[in-house]
Design a protein around this nucleic acid. Structure first.
Length: 645
RNA sequence: GCGCCUGUAGCUCAGGGGAUAGAGCGACGGACUCCGGAUCCGUAGGUCGGGCGUUCGAAUCGCCCCAGGCGUGCCA
């Protein structure tokens, strides 16, 4: 539809530009709200009427005369106060859609796109908030790749921060364990650390004197070659592996894992620091409360300054982030080394190192960078962009995009289900923030386990005779479908108050509903083959038709057929719209609406039982078209396809 | 205080300046001698937080109020 509209727009402009003051960009082609108003609608006569000081309706009819019937358009009508409604030539349009099924009208705009997402501190298990992040980031990556872009997915690992140090403290000082003893832990390691981290946090609250030990651990981790460092290294790598495995379960993967430890050892910050000083992006403060710090003045609030380097000379998190952002654009004049971290489906995921030991691909040097981080970090992301601006990297500042989204909260009901007790201060709240520090949250693997369990029960109910492995595999797909759709269906600025009942639902607007729709379509094709020997090649023969003779359909069926086909044809527009607005709830909505339209159609028009060959063939082509679109859109959302369910 | 975000049906949420504001859940009532009922059809349910403005046209844009959330650390 994108290329169809583009051609049409040009044609309209050609025909009108001599007589009307109309720019190509002013012609917007929208969709009519109802079939009786046609398929496409032009509203520009309203603007034109104003410009020319004339009646819109009158102008619209003049324009309609002038346009006659462009190619592909069967009829043009003036409607309402001045709309021009276009009726497509359905037979030609549908045939051309079928011919274009394996082509795309999208094309890349960038050299290379970098998407950073997930970024979980490697000191505890992943939770539902992280799942939202990963689902959004992964869907963006899939859509950009579909568009034809070169995409690199980075997952930043903060392996030297206080969170990891806290768990080191937990193991060494609270549990009194040595590294060999830690390695013997049988329990799921990320789960063990989840509890331990919460214990450490509350320990620090009641034992302020332990602070000293905490800073000592931090220092030792940075120095390396001591038990604290060895343990921290073990923890962060072990938990990172657990995170990657969790994400693998829902079909999310990465290209490279840049680590903070590498940034530290390779002195990325020092390089960035000298650049910032050189360009006077940051200033040394000589007196006042921030005496001794290096600060950046904030664009919008001139009286406020953001500390980049503390008075003791250590750099803050934002400072390191600026260095990392410069690296992503290839502007730092420094680079990481890499080694393979794990193999996944015959693909290597690389992790950054401080030494050159392996031949590795080149990463970074993006032309467009997305940072998928929740909205609470908006301020810091702004500071990072301002860093680029003050360094005069204006183009890159424009191309640093904070893909922000609201957090996932917990309803008091789901807390109760988890057996967690509300703190006094939290009573009366509608929702609670997920907090790793407090151990407050739904662990990602727990949720996926529960989804799989429920899906398995449902599969058992419907298909008791299938092989166990097959049932299990199907349940996994359904679970992933349910989870990924759930994470995408909300607009990104909408706070998700997590509720088990809602998340575990497989009916209505859910992933399984979409999967079920596809399974149904496939089942029709399977039966066509079983009962009538209708094969792939027979379908291909039908697809070649130059025109589809819709005359054999009843008026009502023509209308119903057209409703679903015209909608399905908007797929790539939806992809583009979702990318541009970073709003993948559009894509989710589209897939759901399309499924709904199919399901209604399905109940009205039988395919297998239809006697009229022409009618039957059109129906076969219709559901094939829907299937093709639905498969693509599900893939973009990372929703797997079950064979049966 | 300042900045960002949110307010739409009982609940959860969609709505890209355009024609009669839509789904899902829940409630109630129905559906094929069947291509899979994880489905479909119908009914009830709305001062789009309030006000003013811009516009041929506002849930959508602007301003002001009201209510809520999140930022605003020499934490990350």
């Amino acid at each position: 539809m994108i290329e169809f509209k583009a051609r049409l727009k040009k044609k309209i402009h050609e025909k009108l530009k001599a007589q009307f003051p109309l720019e190509l960009s002013e012609i917007e082609i929208g969709y009519s709200p109802q079939q009786k108003f046609g398929d496409l609608a032009l509203a520009f006569p309203f603007q034109l009427a104003k410009k020319m000081k004339r009646q819109p309706r009158e102008l619209a009819s003049e324009i309609t005369q002038q346009l006659s019937s462009p190619e592909g358009i069967q009829r043009i009508e003036v409607a309402g106060a001045g709309y021009i409604n276009l009726f497509l030539d359905r037979e030609k349009f549908f045939a051309s859609r079928l011919h274009r099924l394996d082509r795309t009208s999208l094309s890349p705009d960038e050299e290379k796109i970098i998407i950073e997402h997930t970024n979980i501190n490697p000191n505890k298990a992943a939770h539902i908030g992280h799942l939202r992040n990963a689902c959004l980031g992964d869907t963006l990556a899939r859509c950009q790749k579909y568009k034809g872009e070169t995409v690199e997915v980075q997952n930043y690992i903060d392996d030297t921060g206080v969170q990891v140090a806290d768990v080191v403290f937990g193991f060494m000082d609270l549990e009194k364990k040595s590294l060999p003893q830690i390695k013997e832990i049988k329990e799921k390691f990320d789960y063990h650390c989840w509890d331990l981290y919460a214990r450490v946090s509350s320990y620090f609250e009641s034992h302020p004197e332990a602070e000293k030990r905490r800073s000592e651990i931090l220092k030792k981790i940075e120095e390396g070659k001591n038990p604290e460092y060895e343990i921290s290294y073990y923890i962060s790598r072990q938990i990172l592996k657990a995170h990657l495995q969790t994400m693998r379960r829902i079909g999310v993967t990465y290209d490279v894992l840049p680590c903070e430890s590498s940034i530290l050892h390779l002195k990325f910050w020092e390089k960035a620091f000298s650049k910032l000083k050189e360009k006077k992006s940051i200033f040394h403060v000589d007196d006042g409360p921030n005496k001794g710090c290096w600060v950046m003045e904030l664009e919008e609030e001139a009286d406020k300054e953001k500390i980049i380097v503390r008075s003791d000379g250590t750099v803050t998190y934002v400072g390191k982030d600026i260095a990392y952002q410069l690296w992503k654009f290839g502007l730092l004049e420094k680079d990481f080394y890499y080694e393979p971290f794990i193999e996944e489906n015959a693909r290597t995921i690389w992790i950054s190192t401080a030494e050159s030991k392996h031949k590795a691909p080149s990463f970074g040097k993006g032309s467009l960078v997305y940072n998928v981080i929740d909205t609470r970090q908006a301020f810091l992301q702004k500071v990072v962009v301002q860093g680029l601006k003050t360094l005069k990297y204006l183009a890159q500042a424009e191309k640093s995009i904070h893909f922000s989204y609201e957090m996932v909260g917990l309803s008091p009901k789901s807390l109760k289900e988890l057996g967690l007790i509300l703190a006094e201060e939290d009573k009366g709240k509608d929702f609670l923030e997920v907090s790793g520090r407090k151990g407050l949250g739904v662990k990602a693997d727990d949720l996926i386990d529960r989804l799989e369990e429920k899906a398995l029960t449902e599969v058992e109910k419907r298909n008791p005779d299938l092989a166990d492995d097959f049932k299990k595999d199907t349940a996994v797909r359904i679970a992933v479908g349910a989870l990924r759709y759930f994470m995408l269906k909300f607009a990104r600025n909408s706070l998700i108050v997590f509720d088990f009942e809602e998340a575990l639902s497989f009916e209505g607007e859910t992933g399984p509903y979409l999967q079920y729709t596809l399974v149904r379509i496939n089942s029709i094709f399977r039966k066509l083959e079983e009962r009538e020997g209708f094969k792939e090649k027979d379908l291909h023969a039908l697809l070649l038709a130059k025109e589809i003779p819709l005359g054999s359909l009843s008026d009502q069926e023509q209308a119903d057929f057209w409703d679903v086909v015209l909608y399905a044809s908007q797929f790539e527009e939806e992809v583009l719209h979702s990318i541009r607005s970073l709003e993948f709830s559009h894509l989710a909505k589209f897939s759901f609406n399309l499924s709904q339209k199919f399901n209604s159609y399905y109940h009205l028009y039988s395919i297998l039982a239809e006697k009229n060959r022409e009618v039957k063939n059109i129906r076969i082509l219709t559901i094939h078209y829907i299937r093709e679109v639905l498969q693509k859109v599900l893939f973009l959302m990372g929703i797997p396809q079950p064979e049966l369910m």
